[in-house]
């Protein structure tokens, strides 16, 4: 689909908050939290599309939260409202959300891995799930992101440098160890591994969202594989969200 940028917000940290709509005015397709889209950044010199998680979706809009790190995401900084992007999706399997009302779910985001957890938090709160978010960053995150989460659920911030919230890793946060029914994590691999290990040791089940390097996003090229209990599987198709017990970590 061709999506038009309705708004491009340059957050103080340098992250981009993109709000897109269908260029032809049609409705945004249904999407599940944890799914992703492939974005063609034609103004960059890269060949392949970039997989980007869904920050939020409404009937008319798709929102993406992007940390400009590589050539394609940096090129996105030059896009303005009115510009269009090629977008394929939604793709992949998202987070579990069929929890009973009143169950306790912890969402843990590291860095820009926080992005898909907003849409998931909205979904869980809608279902009456007691939802709490722990957001780990190297340094203080953008207030706009915190405010957004705070509108729907409880959010705790952890920073490596102590510039905001709790000074330390997400797994060291006092709330991390509190009893939960399920935990869903998206962030750097070492962080996800630490969360998984800790949760498993306490018998808590959960999921992580991976970001292995992809070419097609459709399960055709077999480049983004992760070793699982079922052997090598495509993160783009069987994931990006995997249950803890599917991984060989």
């Amino acid at each position: 689909m061709i999506l038009r940028l309705e708004r491009v917000e340059h957050l103080p940290s340098g992250w981009l908050w993109l709000i897109l709509s269908q260029a032809d005015g049609s409705l945004m397709p249904m999407m599940n939290p944890g799914q992703f889209v492939e974005v063609g950044v034609d103004r960059s010199e890269v060949l392949l599309n970039r997989p980007i998680s869904i920050y939020n979706r409404t009937d008319r809009t798709l929102e993406l939260l992007v940390a400009p790190i590589g050539r394609a995401t940096k090129a996105l900084r030059d896009y303005e409202a009115g510009d269009t992007l090629r977008v394929i999706g939604p793709l992949g399997q998202g987070f579990r959300s069929d929890f009973a009302p009143g169950s306790k779910v912890l969402l843990v985001g590291g860095g820009v891995g926080i992005a898909p957890l907003y849409y998931q938090a909205c979904e869980l709160v809608k279902k009456g799930v007691e939802t709490e978010v722990i957001f780990g960053m190297r340094t203080a995150p953008d207030q706009a992101i915190i405010d957004r989460f705070a509108e729907v659920c409880d959010i705790k911030v952890c920073t490596d440098d102590g510039s905001a919230g709790f000074h330390g890793l997400v797994t060291a946060h006092p709330d991390f160890g509190k009893a939960k029914d399920y935990i869903q994590v998206c962030g750097p691999k070492p962080m996800m591994k630490a969360c998984l290990k800790d949760a498993v040791s306490r018998g808590t089940e959960g999921e992580v969202s991976l970001e292995n390097m992809m070419a097609c996003g459709l399960g055709a090229c077999l480049c983004c594989v992760e070793k699982t209990v079922k052997g090598n599987v495509c993160v783009c198709k069987e994931g990006p969200v995997f249950k803890f017990d599917q991984l060989t970590w």
Binding site: L47, A215, C221, L222, C223, C224, V225, K227, N232
Partner: peptide, 23 residues
């Protein structure tokens, strides 16, 4: 066949390298 280990792909100028290995 299970193919080769990850990483199996690297983007290069106007191209890509792969080593999927016939999975």
């Amino acid at each position: 066949r299970q193919g080769n280990d990850y990483p199996r792909m690297a983007e290069t100028p106007m191209g890509m390298l792969n080593c999927v290995g016939l999975q």
